[in-house]
Computed example of a mutant assay.
Amino acid sequence: MKKIVFVMLVLFAATTISAQTRKMNIQKSVITWTGKKVTGEHVGTITIKEGALIFKNGKVVGGSFVADMTTLNNIDQSGKDKLKLEGHLKSSDFFNVEAFNTSLLVFKSIAEKEKNHYAVTADLTIKGITNPVKFDLMTKENSAVAKLTVDRTKYGIQYGSGSFFDDLGDRTIYDNFELNVDLKF
């Protein structure tokens, strides 16, 4: 019995030791968002506050990221228009950054599709509301990329949504927005 317990402890220790947490280089990692409306789109960035991918035997087995919502930035406009849009996105109409200054993504399950290409299911928390999201993650040496499509209405963001308001016409903002995540570690 002692031998079995000892062997199990050695196997557990070997398994634990082989996992490697690789922290994000937050100065080089970035999230680029795209929000679309009937008359066009806007693009911007959000800074990653902290994050890491967990590897085991060279494969991704976990990960989590915290986005600093106070850094929400619009990059397709300048001057007053840029400031106006950023202020509106940070307001309670959208992300309510004063009350919810971070968003969180936590990996829940990962399936390898092919070498360095994974199907990920994660919990995404925005404005204190958590919903599952699915996306593909591709890794390469010291980097990883992913593209997520998020339905903002699942997080209580209904402003300008044609799903909730009639007669918006060309002021309709689409429910889905895209996040292109470029991670460096």
Rank of each mutant, 00 (worst) to 15 (best):
K2H: 09
K2I: 08
K2Y: 10
I4P: 01
V5F: 13
V5Q: 03
F6L: 15
V7T: 13
V7P: 03
L11C: 13
T15W: 15
T16P: 05
I17G: 04
S18V: 14
S18G: 08
S18E: 07
A19Y: 13
Q20M: 12
Q20R: 10
T21P: 03
T21D: 09
R22K: 15
R22L: 14
K23Q: 14
K23R: 11
N25F: 12
N25A: 13
N25H: 11
I26P: 03
Q27K: 15
S29Q: 10
I31A: 14
T32E: 14
T32Y: 07
K36S: 15
K37M: 14
K37V: 11
V38A: 10
G40C: 10
E41K: 15
H42Q: 12
V43N: 13
V43P: 06
T45R: 07
I46C: 12
T47F: 12
I48Q: 01
E50C: 11
L53K: 01
F55P: 01
F55M: 05
F55C: 04
F55E: 07
F55W: 10
N57Q: 12
V60M: 03
G63R: 09
G63E: 09
G63W: 11
G63A: 11
F65D: 00
F65T: 00
F65G: 00
V66C: 09
V66Y: 06
A67N: 04
T70M: 01
L72A: 09
N74C: 13
N74G: 07
Q77V: 06
S78Y: 08
K80F: 14
K80P: 11
K80G: 15
D81H: 13
K82T: 11
E86S: 07
E86N: 09
L89K: 08
L89H: 05
K90R: 10
D93I: 06
D93M: 07
F94C: 04
E98N: 14
F100W: 11
T102V: 12
L104M: 12
L105T: 03
E112S: 02
E112V: 04
K113T: 10
K115N: 09
Y118F: 04
V120A: 00
V120F: 01
T121L: 06
A122I: 06
A122T: 06
L124P: 03
T125F: 00
T125A: 02
T125Y: 00
K127R: 15
K127A: 02
I129Y: 02
T130M: 00
T130Q: 01
P132R: 00
K134C: 03
K134A: 07
F135I: 11
F135C: 09
M138T: 13
T139A: 01
T139Q: 00
E141W: 03
N142L: 02
A144T: 09
A144E: 04
K147M: 13
V150I: 15
V150R: 02
V150P: 05
V150C: 10
D151N: 12
R152E: 06
K154C: 02
K154S: 04
K154I: 01
Y155M: 02
Y155F: 14
G156T: 05
Q158L: 14
Y159W: 13
Y159F: 14
Y159L: 02
Y159Q: 04
G162M: 08
S163Y: 05
F164G: 06
F164D: 07
F164E: 08
F165D: 01
F165G: 02
D166C: 03
L168C: 01
D170V: 10
D170A: 07
Y174D: 00
D175M: 10
D175H: 07
F177I: 01
E178W: 04
N180T: 11
V181N: 03
F185G: 02
